[in-house]
Structure formats: C-alpha cells, structure tokens
Simulated scan of single mutants.
Amino acid sequence: MKILYLAAVDENENKDIGVINKINGQIAAFESLNINVDKLFYNSHQMFFNGELFYSFNTHYNRRIFMYERILKDLKVGSYQGVYIRYTSSDPFFVSFLKKLKGLRKKVIIELPTYPYDRERESTKLTTKISNITDKIYRNLLKSHVDNIVTFMNYDYIWGIPVIKLQNGISIEQIDFTGYTNSKNYLSLIAVANVSKWHGYDRLLNGMVDYYRSNPKRKVIFNLVGDGDEIDNLKEIVIKHNLQDKVVFHGAKSGRDLTGIFKKSHMAVGSLGMHRIGIEQGSTLKAKEYTARGLPFILGYQDTSFSQKDKFIYYISNNETSINIDNIISFYDNLKVESNEIRALAEQNFTWNKQLIKVKEALKTTL
C-alpha cells in the first residue's frame, strides 16, 4: 500500500519543528505498518517532494491557485491508494482537487490537528478574515469527497464526515528520558511551544507575580523554550514585574540543547489557555512528550489521553485566573509516582504505531 502525505510545513522554519517531528513520526509509523509514504510539503511559494524542490511559484496566490493542478499533472497520483492531508483550510481549488481524487477512486483522509478551530484563527487582518469566511463556506462541501476525518477530539462526525478518533502519538525512541528529582531548594518549570494565546503562560507569570510579592522561601524558575506570536507579550509582563532573574526565554531548542534544559527541570507546563479558543478537552502532543520525558506536568484542560489514576498531572481551572504557585509546590512536594512509571505509560499507550492502525484499516476498505 502506498499513500501521499500532503502538509503545509516548512522544514527550514524553527516554528514548524514540532509539527515536522510529529509528521515524521507518523510517516515512520505508517511505514512500520507496511504503508509506503511519499511526502509533499509546501510553504508560501514552493512545494517539496520527499525533501527535494518540486515546484516554485511566483507568489503565494499562484501557489494557492495552481498547486493542486500541478500535483495532479506532475505526480503519478494513480500509484497511490490514498491521500492523507493535514488540513489547513478549504477553498474552491481545494474542493476541486478532492473531487478529482475521488474521480480517480482514491481514499481521501483529512487530519484536523485542532477542532473546533475558528476561534484559534480569529484575526483583524482582512486577508485572514476573507480566508476564514471562505473556509466556512467550502468546508461544508467536503463530505462528498472525503472518506474520513482524523482528529484528536471526541467527535463521531465533523461536517457530516465520519471521524477516526486518535490520541496524539509520539516517537518514543526519539525522546530522551530525563525524569525529575525532588528538590526542596527551588522549583524549575519548563514549557516547550510555538507560543500562542491558547498556551496561557501569562496565567503562570501572573501567578509568579503574586507568589513573589509574598516573600516566599523557595525560588521558582520558569524556562520557556520556543518562539511564537505571544513571546513579546510575555516578555513585557516579565520586565514590568521584574521577573528577569526568574523567567528564562531560551528561544527554539532541539536535540541535546533541549534535553539539557529538561534535565534541570522538575515539572513541565502544558496549555493553560485552551478556553480562549473554545476547547475544554483534547489530546495534545506536548502532554505526551512530557510523559515520555518522565516529568510531572500542569494542564489547564482535560486531556482525554489520561485518566484520574494518573497522579503526575496537576489540573488547574480552564479560565483566566492566575496560577496559584503555592498549590503547585505542594503538589510537587507530595508526588509519589516515579519518573520511570511516567515514561512507561508513554511507552505502553502513546506510540504512533498503535494509533495509526485505525487509519490503516480505513485505507484498506474498498472504495
């Protein structure tokens, strides 16, 4: 079996590192399940086929209009049993492409990384507003041309299309086990993200402001790894409240550099602002990665991949209140679970191989 994996990512952009790692993990899992994968990645002006430049366009608009035509013309689409698409948005060109794929009797599966996503994409930019309106119109036409939607949320149907429900998976062998140690001297927190409003790290910073006003005995440090649209806003909070010696902005890190920061950390921080995009529960990739590291962590939403028995997760309210740092310290001081137990949970439950068996079965069904 052979499929084409289509995604809007740029392998030369730091902001796409997390997404690219996820996609490569999925592709490795597909291939371990005896599914050969060709990958077609695209950015604003170019397309890359299996890492090699496939086609360049003069403008972003030309790419958007003519990309699908170029795929159908220059790739041997007939050699694929199906096409797996990481969804960005719908427009008439995308719908026409899907219609032609179905005319060729190809399985079409779309992955929605986040759903619902409308609030996540809100913007004051006119071009973005037009794109969002276009998406809302044309996504309702997808059900005639799409076999399944893959998502990590608890839905049976989206836009009238049957859903394959997965948990976000990880490539466990690519994530170093770092664990945590009990320290009574200080507490080091770490978050890794392409920082956006739904990460809600301002809630943690505001909690640190309250905490340090009370003249605490224990130092709390927050290591933020990654870039993103919200970084400047967070830096303003840090400067305004003189937290420069307690909050470290590391920028984007990977490999040994990232592992080195994790080794000095006691707890991780997941998304704390999912309510800002209308999400109460989900299955995020980052929570699985923290689990693979063997770290306890903080979440501001209900992660459906975990159960109440998992005592290494500290849940906070999914709203705008500041984080109570004293409560986090108390949780950390009373942890009973060992790092290797946390890692074992990831090894047993969160690999892509186990998750993508469902997609393989969908690809095998007769058109």
Rank of each mutant, 00 (worst) to 15 (best):
K286G: 06
V269N: 12
E320Q: 15
S283H: 01
S283C: 13
T291N: 10
V269K: 03
Q308I: 09
L299A: 05
Y301A: 11
K309E: 15
M274G: 06
I277E: 11
K311S: 14
L285P: 01
Y314V: 04
S317A: 14
K311G: 13
I328A: 03
N319S: 13
R276S: 15
F297V: 03
Q308V: 08
H275S: 14
L295K: 08
E289S: 10
K288M: 10
K311E: 15
L299S: 08
F306I: 11
T321P: 03
E289W: 04
Y290P: 01
K286C: 06
L299N: 12
N319Q: 09
D333L: 10
I325C: 06
Q308N: 13
L299E: 15
D310Q: 10
I279G: 05
F312P: 10
Y332H: 05
R293K: 14
D310A: 07
H275T: 11
E280T: 08
D303H: 06
Y314W: 04
P296K: 12
S317T: 12
F331Q: 03
G278P: 14
I329V: 07
T291F: 02
D303Y: 01
I329R: 05
Q281F: 04
F297S: 02
I279D: 15
D326N: 11
Q281S: 15
S271T: 06
S271P: 07
L335V: 09
M274Q: 12
I329N: 05
H275R: 10
L285T: 15
T321S: 14
N324R: 08
A287D: 10
S307T: 15
R293V: 04
I328R: 01
E289D: 07
L272R: 13
H275L: 11
F306Q: 11
G273A: 05
G278R: 13
G273K: 00
T284E: 09
I277F: 05
S330W: 09
Y301T: 10
S283I: 02
F297M: 04
N324T: 03
A292Y: 00
G273W: 08
I277N: 07
D303I: 02
Y315W: 01
Y301N: 05
E280P: 06
G294H: 01
T304I: 15
